[in-house]
């Protein structure tokens, strides 16, 4: 699979751009967090496309961003369950 470039993204409509980025991010996230992959991908897709392209080129940055997303998600789930009970 060829790398995703800014010009490939620019040629697609905005909603399709996020889908294209998600298709690249998802398998990488799936390898780290299988049960949360769809959710984490969705969270990361709210980041600017230009930054997402940089993350795809930098595994270390991507890993730290994924861990950040997991931490945010877990903190959110804990606060949700605290509020409900």
């Amino acid at each position: 699979q060829e790398p995703l470039t800014a010009s490939m993204l620019a040629a697609a409509p905005p909603q399709e751009q996020k889908q294209m980025l998600g298709e690249r991010l998802y398998p990488l996230i799936l390898a780290m967090h299988p049960s949360l992959a769809g959710k984490i991908t969705g969270m990361l897709l709210e980041i600017d496309n230009s930054e997402l392209l940089l993350l795809l080129e930098s595994p270390e940055s991507l890993h730290s961003k994924i861990e950040e997303a997991v931490a945010v998600l877990q903190a959110h789930q804990i606060s949700e369950s605290t509020h409900k009970s």
Partner: peptide, 21 residues
């Protein structure tokens, strides 16, 4: 600094991968 990531973000549905059950 507070994370900018949103825990309420919509879940991503991949086209090219089977959905985990």
């Amino acid at each position: 600094r507070k994370s900018t990531l949103n825990p309420n973000a919509k879940e991503f549905n991949p086209r090219s991968f089977a959905q985990p059950k």
